[in-house]
């Protein structure tokens, strides 16, 4: 059992996947000598060479578009998009080719491509470096979308994403890159597209993913000090959603608060709320509440403390639900 930062855990996961399969390539801006701006690919080019770890020209459509071509050739590219806000030049290739080729070819051309995107705020960055665009991908048929929340999950999920024959958009919560956790490299991980109950409780269900999972767990600890046991579920997979554990939980607790950094309108959180009311209508004791970013562009960083869901906002929503 090793204690690793999430960045190192993903690095180890990438290394394990590259050792296992010579068709796995890592490609992106500055992923080679520099090891990526977050050092997630540190040392990989040194050990696997420039044909397995490609420092690419500075063009996101090029990264995705050539990865599609490499996948047609039989490679399994892992693309790094430097920051969430820079993915959009590549969005056309993701939506028009990456997501659709399996369907267009009726299975003759699989697209085993992973697009890693550091996402979310909380690092005091300039514009375009703190966004949560996951709904834009979860909405696209043909893509699978996941978000890791801790080092242990990240180590396994990146390997499972690479092994998937479907294109996977892999969101990494950048403000948690340096959080450490125990990683059991001999464990048998749960399947990639499953959500996970991470803290049992009976009073209310708290669902989150990515960077806010830690916030949810802190809220559960704080509530427990007041004698309220919150059940916390890490969604992990945003497309397809795995909501059966959420339905089970809500049927027991009768209350649900969904937490996410992304704006609330037409969001993953909105989809969770809609599906829970479809499946758990008679179990609900209160409306499903959402604690999210606001429906604004990501603000200047001096405002982000107010933009991001924090402990107090989550607990406020918990109180409102319980007081219904």
């Amino acid at each position: 059992m090793a204690v690793l930062t999430m960045a190192k855990a993903i690095n180890d996961g990438l290394r394990a996947a590259m050792e296992r399969d010579p068709k796995v390539l890592v490609m992106g801006e500055d992923v080679g000598k520099l090891g990526g701006v977050f050092r997630v690919t540190d040392g990989l080019q040194k050990d696997f060479g420039e044909q397995r770890v490609l420092d690419t020209p500075l063009a996101e459509s090029g990264i995705i578009g050539t990865a599609v071509g490499l996948a047609i050739r039989g490679f399994r590219p892992v693309c790094e998009i430097q920051f969430d806000g820079f993915v959009f030049p590549g969005y056309d290739q993701i939506v028009s080719q990456l997501a659709k080729l399996h369907f267009r070819s009726q299975g003759k051309v699989p697209m085993p491509v992973v697009v890693r995107i550091p996402f979310g705020g909380g690092i005091g960055a300039v514009e375009h470096h703190s966004e949560s665009p996951e709904a834009l991908f979860a909405h696209v048929a043909g893509l699978k979308v996941v978000a890791c929340s801790n080092a242990d999950d990240a180590y396994w999920m990146i390997q499972q994403a690479i092994a998937s024959d479907d294109p996977v958009i892999f969101f990494e919560p950048k403000r948690r890159y340096w959080d450490k956790a125990e990683v059991d490299v001999s464990a048998t991980p749960p399947p990639l597209h499953t959500s996970r109950l991470v803290r049992p409780g009976s009073a209310l269900t708290l669902v989150g993913y990515g960077p806010v999972l830690k916030t949810c767990l802190e809220a559960a600890t704080a509530a427990a000090a007041d004698g309220t046991e919150l059940e916390v579920i890490d969604l992990r997979t945003l497309s397809p959603l795995d909501l059966d554990p959420v339905f089970d939980s809500v049927r027991r607790t009768g209350r649900l608060v969904v937490v996410a950094e992304a704006p609330s309108e037409v969001s993953v959180a909105a989809e969770v709320a809609a599906r829970v009311q479809e499946q758990c209508f008679h179990s609900l004791e209160a409306p499903v509440l959402r604690v999210t970013g606001f429906d604004t562009p990501y603000p200047p960083s001096k405002c982000e403390e107010d933009f991001l869901p924090d402990l107090d906002r989550v607990l406020d929503a918990v109180d409102r639900s319980l007081g219904w």
Partner: peptide, 9 residues
Amino acid sequence: LNATGYAMG
């Protein structure tokens, strides 16, 4: 771009 990626392969 897809053709270029294929050719790189």
